[in-house]
Every structure is written in structure tokens, then in C-alpha cells.
Nucleic acid binder design. Structure first.
Length: 596
DNA sequence: GCCGTTTTCGGCCCGACTGTTTTCAGTCG
């Protein structure tokens, strides 16, 4: 029998279908929640469920207990689950596609499919659209004219959503938010402003921009917010307003009086899973949490909080950094007093991945600024050292000897440029001559052995053949990190481009083991469209004892400012200063880089 | 179906919003 290997997303989708079916079948509602929770949990795993099953570790998945584990076991052994099939049979098939339409849940979808007899329809969403436009929904019990219109517009939204997901890279959202927050702060009644949601948690991509303001004059501040240039006022109420900017981005403002600001900030920062866990934890202390404050279950009396610190303190917990609020064990760590002290941007002492405009006839793009400009910028940023990591000379256009010669001349040129720069400035910054070397499809490096003489160390990265299968890709990377003693950093390890390209498919545990063996640091590339290693893999790698190098991959002086986004990724992975090699001072870092 | 700083039994996050309803069910974040 051929057993297809289901991905985490496919398993999560299957569990959600079971949850939806149970909801229609009026099963115990906590059983439904359990299935949804297991689905969420599996969707966000960094390892494949199948691999965990292989190793007998299904019980390590939060929300998966003996029941669901038993069914997953059957799924992996036989390719299907009899019990799931039986449950699904009791619900018309057409229900499931409708669940993707905003506003339609299991109950409504079921009602519509049954009443409109959409069972056999090939394109259920299309058939529903047609029925709505023909006025067949309004007469159904529980629906009306308004819901009929809503369904038509929801289907339009759904179809648009199929084409393109409207998220933006973190720095884009950050820039927009900073500007609006600066605008808000100009109003004298504004006591405090903060970003909310995924933006505050520094998730690598952000949907809507949510901003909070503390004020005793909510109406005035909301009106001031509406002075900010926008194309459309979407919504306005006592709690704030929503506008659509000229660039099409949606911005929500929430206003709250200062003495109750803490609970609001906490609630709207999320994540949803963090909040759910926190509220469960609150209930064990007979405290009911909401965006308004904390209520004593016994007496019903409500307490309000100026700050998040006070809110968490009421629960007997220290404040938890927003980047950690993903229900990855942070609440348990807080209870145990074991929250890590996360790395901060000012801990960073150097940037090791910088491309200058020196033309070494490389296969990939050069930077636009000079070595001296980058050094000056580094000194400005208080860095003790930088690494020049231009791409290797192209191997198709040069012979080995030509490459060696280019690298030799480059080293001499950089040293000469460096000494003339040092003479001109009061503030020093040390330099390492490095190189970003391509990992070829077979795992060999695109720099001849003899050329390594002319570099202090190299970053190895994948820039081609991104779609190799898992085994080849894993072997390729493992081979590359051990290919030469001067390989010290694995550059943008997954190769993903946010919103554009998935990362490569590799066995990360094996890659991490190889990096650990050769003491190679994983890069956390701060370039906005990369943010690679992704935060969830940083979290995993950290548990394997790996260290990281946060770099900007700057191709222009200004881009060296992007370091903070790499730091955000590290913080989301729970990294401390001690986990980051370029948080070391010059001497220690040099010893590490040169393996002294 | 899951889970444990009150528990291996008896709980399970909370509130807003919406549309359809005279008191609530469904959906969402």
C-alpha cells in the first residue's frame, strides 16, 4: 500500500475538518476545541509530525493527547483514519470549502449547503454566490437580506484573498507605524503610544497596523488621528478608529484611559495563544482576565492596571517581552522565574555580512558604497569590528588561478584602504576580510582551496538550486559547513524570501548538528525580505546549543541600520546576548572567528 | 479530547460584534 506522507498543514487541515464536523454534529464543545487546538499546534510545529511519529514523540506535541495520537498513528501506518472517515461521512462534503469564506462557520455553512442542496455542486463557493445573487438565502431561517449581501461581499473578498495575501514585511509596517505614532504624540493629551499585535511582537510579516494610545481625552485624540492623511475612514467609535492609508494599508487606533491602559495593551498585543494560556493560568488563581482588567471570580470586583507590568504582577508573574508571547513555554518560564534576558540591539558589536562596491567580478550583486563608508558607519553604530563579505568571484567566468589572483588583490586593496581610513578617523573599528561563498548544488564551495589563504573567514550560503529534495539539500548544507576550517557562518540558512519564496527543504536537526560539530554559527540575516534563520528555527537551534551571528547583509551603508530586525528575530527565538557570537567584544570574537 | 501549583476528575479564555432575534447563536480575534 502506498502511504502518502502528509505535511503538517495537511494534518492540521484534516483535524480542523473533524472539529467542524463535530460542531455540526453537536458534539461536546470541548472536544471541538481540543481538535482545533491540536490543529493549531501541529500547523506551527517546526518539525514534521511524521518525523515525531517515527521517533515515538507524538506525545510531545501540545494539545495532542492519547486519543488524537492514536488516530495519527493509524494515519501514518495505514494512510487513513477510519474514525475520521466515519465522522466526515455524516456531514455533506460541500460544507468544508465554505469554511474559508469569511463569516461562515460550520453551522452556517451546513445550513446553507443543506437548505440550498449544494451537496453535489463541484464549485460550492460559486454555487453559493449564485444562490445569494438569486435571492435564495434571505428566506432561509436564521438568515436575512443583510446576511445575503454579506455573503456576496464575503465571497468577493475570499476570491481576492485567493490571489494575494496582503501582508507586509516587518520594517515596512514599522516605518508606517513610527510615522503615525509620531503624529499621535504631537497631541498634548496623549500620554503614551504603542504598537500592538504582530507588529509589537515583531513577527516577520504584518497584516494590519494596530496602534494604542493612552489618554484621558479619547474623542479628541481619535479626531487628531483622523488628521493623519488617509484615503478612507473605515470605522469610528468610542474606542478609536480605523483608516485606510493612501497606500492601501489599514491602520487601527485604540484609545484607552491611562489607568486601564495596561490590560488593553496586553490583550491587543496577543498572541491569541499566549492570551488563552494566560487566561487559563489566571483562572487557576480565581482571576478572570480581559482587555478591561482582572476580575476576582469570587467577588466579581474588577481591578484596572496602568501598565502591563502591573497586569502580569497581579498574576504573580514578571513582565514577558512581547516577542516571546507565542505560547512556547514563556508563561511556564515566567512562573519558574526562568525567563531569559533577551539580546538587545546595543549588545551587537559588529556586522559580519557587508557587501561593498569593490568589483571582484562576482557572480552576484555588489554593494553600492565604499569600504571607508561602511567603516565610518560601523564606527557610528559603536561597532568594534565589521566583516567584508562580498560574493565570491564568479566561477563560470574565471579560471581557478584567476579567482585566486582576484582574492589576493582584493585582500591587499582592502588592507590598504583600511589603513588609509584609520589614519583619517579618531574612532577605530576593526576589519575582517571575509567572503560570502556560494554553496554549489553538490555541497562544494565556489572558492578554490588556495583562495582561502586571502580571507580571515567565510560565510557559506545557498544562492542556486533551491528546490532540491530534502535529502540532497541536507547533505549539501552539511557538506558545505564542514568543507573548510575557515567556514564560520552559515548565511541566510533557509534562503526564504518573505512573501515570495519558501525556504529550502532540509532536515534542520541534521544541519544544526553539523554546524554544532564544526562550531559554525547560524546567521540571522536581518535583511527585511529574509529574516533568516526564521524565529521558530532559532528557537529550535538554541535548544540544540547552537550560536548565531546577526548580520544585515547590507548592500548599502543605510542598510546597516536594519540590525534591529535581526535582533527581533533572535529575541523571538529567545536568544540571549551569550547566544550571539557578534555580541562578543573584538578580542573574543576574533578568537572565535579565527579559531584561536 | 486534553490536562494538572486546587485537580487523574471536572473543568476547559473572554468579550465584541452582527444579524436575527424578543433572549440568542454564530463567528471572530
Amino acid at each position: 500500500m502506498i502511504i502518502s506522507i502528509m505535511t503538517n498543514l495537511e494534518i492540521a487541515t484534516l483535524l480542523r475538518k473533524i472539529a467542524a464536523a463535530y460542531q455540526i454534529l453537536e458534539e461536546n464543545r470541548f472536544k471541538i476545541i481540543a481538535y482545533d487546538r491540536a490543529a493549531d499546534s501541529i500547523e506551527h510545529l517546526t518539525s514534521e509530525t511524521k518525523d515525531l511519529w517515527d521517533n515515538g514523540k507524538l506525545d510531545e506535541i501540545p494539545g495532542v493527547g492519547s486519543g488524537i495520537a492514536h488516530y495519527l498513528d493509524e494515519l501514518f501506518r495505514t494512510g487513513k483514519v477510519k474514525h475520521f472517515d466515519d465522522v466526515m461521512k455524516r456531514v455533506p462534503k460541500g460544507v468544508f470549502p465554505l469554511l474559508s469564506v469569511p463569516g461562515l462557520g460550520p453551522k452556517k455553512a451546513h445550513k446553507l449547503v443543506t437548505e440550498l442542496r449544494l451537496k453535489g455542486a463541484k464549485d460550492v463557493v460559486g454555487a453559493l454566490d449564485a444562490a445569494a445573487k438569486a435571492g435564495k438565502i434571505a428566506p432561509i431561517e436564521g438568515f436575512g437580506e443583510k446576511s445575503q449581501e454579506d455573503i456576496i461581499s464575503a465571497i468577493a473578498t475570499y476570491k481576492r484573498g485567493q490571489i494575494k495575501e496582503n501582508r507586509m514585511e516587518l520594517p515596512v509596517a514599522d516605518a508606517i507605524a513610527q510615522e503615525i505614532m509620531a503624529h499621535l504624540k504631537k497631541h498634548s493629551a496623549v500620554v503614551r503610544v504603542d504598537a500592538l499585535g504582530s507588529l509589537r511582537r515583531k513577527v516577520s510579516t504584518v497584516g494590519d497596523i494596530d496602534i494604542a494610545a493612552a489618554t484621558k481625552k479619547p474623542e479628541e485624540v481619535t479626531l487628531h488621528f483622523l488628521d493623519y492623511p488617509h484615503q478612507k475612514l473605515v470605522e469610528q467609535g468610542p474606542g478609536g478608529a480605523t483608516i485606510l492609508l493612501k497606500n492601501g494599508r489599514q491602520v487601527d487606533l485604540r484609545v484607552q484611559r491611562p489607568d486601564a491602559y495596561g490590560a488593553m495593551l496586553q490583550y491587543f498585543t496577543g498572541s491569541k495563544h499566549h492570551n488563552i494560556k494566560l487566561r487559563s493560568y489566571g483562572l487557576t488563581k480565581r482571576k478572570s482576565l480581559s482587555e478591561h482588567g482582572i476580575k476576582e471570580v469570587k467577588t466579581g470586583s474588577m481591578r484596572y492596571f496602568h501598565t502591563e507590568e502591573a497586569f502580569y504582577k497581579e498574576l504573580g508573574l514578571p513582565w514577558i517581552a512581547p516577542e516571546m508571547r507565542e505560547d512556547k513555554g514563556e508563561i511556564e518560564a515566567a512562573q519558574a522565574g526562568k525567563l531569559p534576558k533577551l539580546v538587545e540591539t546595543q549588545d551587537i558589536k559588529g556586522d559580519l555580512h557587508i557587501h561593498t562596491n569593490y568589483d571582484l567580478e562576482s557572480s552576484h550583486d555588489l554593494g553600492v558604497d565604499s569600504l571607508a563608508d561602511h567603516l565610518t558607519k560601523a564606527a557610528e553604530l559603536d561597532y568594534e569590528y565589521i566583516g567584508l563579505s562580498d560574493h565570491n568571484p564568479s566561477i563560470t567566468n574565471h579560471t581557478e588561478n584567476q579567482i585566486i589572483d582576484i582574492m589576493k588583490r582584493r585582500k591587499a586593496k582592502y588592507e590598504q584602504l583600511y589603513s588609509s581610513w584609520v589614519k583619517k578617523v579618531s574612532r577605530k573599528c576593526q576589519m575582517f576580510v571575509m567572503c560570502e561563498v556560494d554553496i554549489l548544488p553538490d555541497g562544494k564551495l565556489a572558492l578554490p582551496e588556495k583562495a582561502f589563504e586571502f580571507v580571515d573567514a567565510v560565510i557559506v550560503s545557498i544562492h542556486s538550486s533551491f528546490t532540491q529534495d530534502k535529502k540532497h539539500m541536507t547533505d549539501r548544507i552539511v557538506r558545505a559547513v564542514g568543507a573548510h576550517p575557515k567556514v564560520r557562518i552559515l548565511g541566510h540558512p533557509t534562503g526564504r524570501l518573505l512573501l515570495k519564496r519558501e525556504g529550502v527543504n532540509a532536515d534542520w536537526a541534521a544541519v544544526f548538528a553539523a554546524c554544532k560539530k564544526h562550531d559554525v554559527a547560524l546567521e540571522i540575516n536581518a535583511y527585511p525580505s529574509r529574516l533568516d534563520l526564521p524565529d521558530d528555527l532559532v528557537f529550535d537551534a538554541l535548544r540544540e546549543g547552537l550560536r548565531f551571528c546577526i548580520d544585515t547583509d547590507a548592500h548599502a551603508v543605510g542598510q546597516m541600520e536594519m540590525m534591529k530586525y535581526g535582533v527581533s528575530v533572535s529575541r523571538r527565538g529567545w536568544a540571549t546576548k551569550g547566544d550571539i557570537v557578534n555580541a562578543l567584544g573584538y578580542n573574543e570574537f576574533k578568537d572565535w572567528l579565527l579559531k584561536i
